[in-house]
Design a protein around this nucleic acid. Structure first.
Lengths: 184, 184
DNA sequence: AATCGACATGTCAATACTGTCATGTCAGTT
DNA sequence: AACTGACATGACAGTATTGACATGTCGATT
């Protein structure tokens, strides 16, 4: 009677709801922004989880391709499960983010060390923010709701997050430099 | 020869670097914003990890209190390890965030369902943003670098993140409503 | 025809983590 | 003196995840 590891299964349902895919293609999706910012998983977790979802009837193999590939699609039950999960109250989701942890721990360091990290964050956030902003701009202006639009909302989300991180790091640098200038 | 589970150990080193604490107090720290936004862990992970850190000489018991409590402090080696971790290049840290995953999966849903979720996000982000903004405002204006200031940078970070989420969700609602108004 | 790289899936042992149960202490109340 | 709730740590079984290894296919070069 397990129903843990819920997040991975729902991530898979979500991806398959947008478009049927093989395990390999799902793995590639996790190697991109989805895995980088929302939920990471390797193929060794994905394949067994797909098998479990198929066993529960939430997905089904709807095609076979070259090199033994199997294309999975969500079943109506799978879509219902996904919907109920996304709509369900947030309560307290699992959170693990090494980058954010680093930011939390910044205060534990020497201000000089913290500044080094902050300057790197400023640079990195500017790059990632610009990349995602470009992604959004290049995407079609209207949201073709439901199909190809997957990732458009997410890209805008990411762009804004990085813009916020960028502003924060600059603010933090100013604060630390000001504190260093006038010793107590 | 393991050196995995790095993040938890560094979170502990960071907390102890700010101030010596017992396992119980560390557990409470994880029950707060640290656990909610950066890295979650329960006492059943924390105690064994503390023992391992002590074995490796990165922390040490520097006091014993009532009810069998042991107060841990970082050793110089522990601080060096922490410093090198925070300063080390980001490469690709572990990321797991159920809330962000939900946002990624929004596009997989009916626009009507997505709107429900987005409106809840607007509300929640406004609340959390306001709470953290208040936390920052109530904190001392200058950063007493190194000691009591822990959490000040982090609180501002969180406040800005939620402000960004708030803006994003409002933007997304407008987009979806506009798309619904003019059917293709 | 051999080679190579991307495609595609899988096993397995080791490690990590969660939830549940268990145990005991101490301070303040009743 | 019994009770209660917060303090404080720990064991353990079940589940999840990772990293290393393994296997084979197909298309395009060489």
């Amino acid at each position: 009677m397990y129903d843990l590891g819920m997040s991975l299964s729902h991530a898979l349902l979500g991806l398959l709801a947008v478009e049927p895919r093989s395990g390999y293609e799902l793995t590639k999706a996790f190697a991109g922004d989805l895995g980088r910012y929302a939920w990471q998983a390797g193929h060794t977790s994905i394949y067994p989880e797909l098998a479990r979802l198929a066993e529960r009837g939430l997905v089904a193999v709807t095609g076979e391709g070259a090199r033994g590939s199997r294309t999975y699609s969500v079943t109506p039950e799978g879509y219902a499960e996904l919907r109920s999960w996304v709509l369900s109250p947030p309560s307290r989701g699992k959170v693990r983010n090494e980058e954010v942890l680093r930011m939390f721990l910044l205060s534990a360091l020497d201000p000089a060390d913290a500044l080094v990290v902050l300057r790197r964050i400023v640079e990195h956030a500017a790059e990632e923010g610009a990349r995602l902003r470009k992604l959004v701009d290049d995407a079609p202006a209207a949201i073709p709701a439901g199909s190809a639009g997957f990732g458009y909302l997410a890209a805008e989300f990411g762009a804004r997050q990085f813009e916020a991180v960028h502003g924060w790091a600059q603010w933090a640098i100013e604060k630390l430099e000001a504190a260093a200038a006038e010793p107590a």
